[in-house]
Design a protein around this nucleic acid. Structure first.
Lengths: 225, 225
DNA sequence: TTTCTATGTTAAGCTTGTGTTAAGTCTTTT
DNA sequence: AAAAGACTTAACACAAGCTTAACATAGAAA
């Protein structure tokens, strides 16, 4: 998987360039557009991780775009941050009501912008993905150190086992289907045999105890503490 | 379950009172303290959903508190928002680096504050809220966890039974014909015998009580709470 | 009432998904 | 190059869950 993708939407090209420059420098994949209407089409195509919208734009403003994105299935969960001139408190409220995830005020300082973007993206991965150490029960993981803790004891897991456990533990009790597991742990186009997942599940159970991963036949697996 | 809990930390009692008043009015459970050091102890005790920290405080400032929270297992995933006077951009950067989830600038306008807090909390619960339990009566289902709740008790159902129940419960009191059930639960081209649906209905009745699914002879079945 | 039909009930059989083990391939380390 | 570790595959076992068959019952129609 490539870098995280950011779509910038603002009617002023200089601002696009300024923001774009600073974000690409940080390794993000940046796409820009000056047209609010096009923004939605582009978003549907490139599926960005984050969309940064200027609130004030001619034709279609950020709030309208935001609302439309929130109503478009394929991209409704994309993170959205607004840009606005300082003091436009009215639009800030409206923005959050429209479903914004964050709010950035102009004038923009590069370091601040980058910190903020990182924070926003970190939230996303926190919510729905594998992130740093996750709580729950006596089994914990620390993604940074790549360690699994079982009742305080530190264990080192091979990559696939770790990623699989991390995925399951990222949302305890949620059922993950084999499809999803394959996609998230093995990655998109990989083709592996039927038993591959089972075998890894088995190894996890061997190490963590049989009760911590439950099978829902015909559906998938879930982690339980 | 109770309301969402917010812990406010600021050295100025007037601000605590002002924020506390506005947030309790919205139905949040608010706890306040003027001591940064105490804040962490309190957080460990009450496990708030969100902690709002003033950046500038004597003794122990918001950033230090934030760092310590992020290093304390039992509360490390708590949402944290910072309060700061406008223009303290340095601390804003430092705040995000320390692991803040949001940043609120003074002076604070009540409506804005509330919008913002809602947005922060929505993020957290966002993912869980989406398809959590579908409503109705003492029997609920949670598709994500693949669980059925009967008077609070958690039950695990086999796939077909679950899907059948989910279908019926998706529109309580609506009658679903056998044709529709076959198509929605078994899928298009599948051919199964006459008694298959009955048997599954029977199993549901066995587990949930006879009264919850009603037969309309010659028509179909419906769920009633 | 009798008859007919749709559904209820039960248990047995079959199917398919998953568990399990071990061996094989690929990778990394030394 | 050898050794160790990680991942995948193959083969078989097993059982939960699904379906079926056979018979029972109830309600509607004749």
């Amino acid at each position: 998987m490539g870098n995280e993708k950011i779509l910038l939407v603002d009617d002023e090209p200089e601002i696009l360039e300024f923001l774009g420059y600073n974000l690409s420098k940080e390794g993000y994949d940046v796409t820009t557009t000056t047209s609010g209407r096009k923004a939605i089409e582009i978003a549907k195509t490139i599926k960005p991780d984050l969309i940064i919208l200027d609130v004030m734009m001619p034709e279609m403003d950020g709030i309208e775009i935001c609302q439309e994105i929130r109503e478009t299935d394929s991209i409704k969960n994309t993170l959205i941050a607004f840009l606005s001139a300082r003091g436009e408190d009215y639009s800030q409220v409206a923005g959050f009501d429209a479903g914004a995830d964050d709010y950035i005020t102009k004038p923009i300082k590069p370091r601040l912008l980058v910190s903020r973007v990182k924070a926003i993206l970190r939230r996303k991965s926190g919510a729905e993905e594998i992130n740093v150490n996750e709580q729950e029960g006596s089994i914990k993981i620390d993604r940074e150190k790549y360690l699994v803790y079982k009742e305080g004891e530190e264990l080192t897991f091979p990559k696939k086992e770790f990623e699989l456990l991390a995925l399951l533990i990222s949302k305890p009790r949620k059922v993950f289907t084999r499809d999803v597991i394959l996609e998230r742990v093995w990655g998109g186009g990989v083709i592996v045999g039927d038993r591959t997942i089972d075998v890894h599940i088995r190894k996890l159970r061997e190490k963590l105890g049989d009760d911590c991963i439950k099978t829902i036949k015909g559906v998938g697996y879930k982690f339980e503490s």
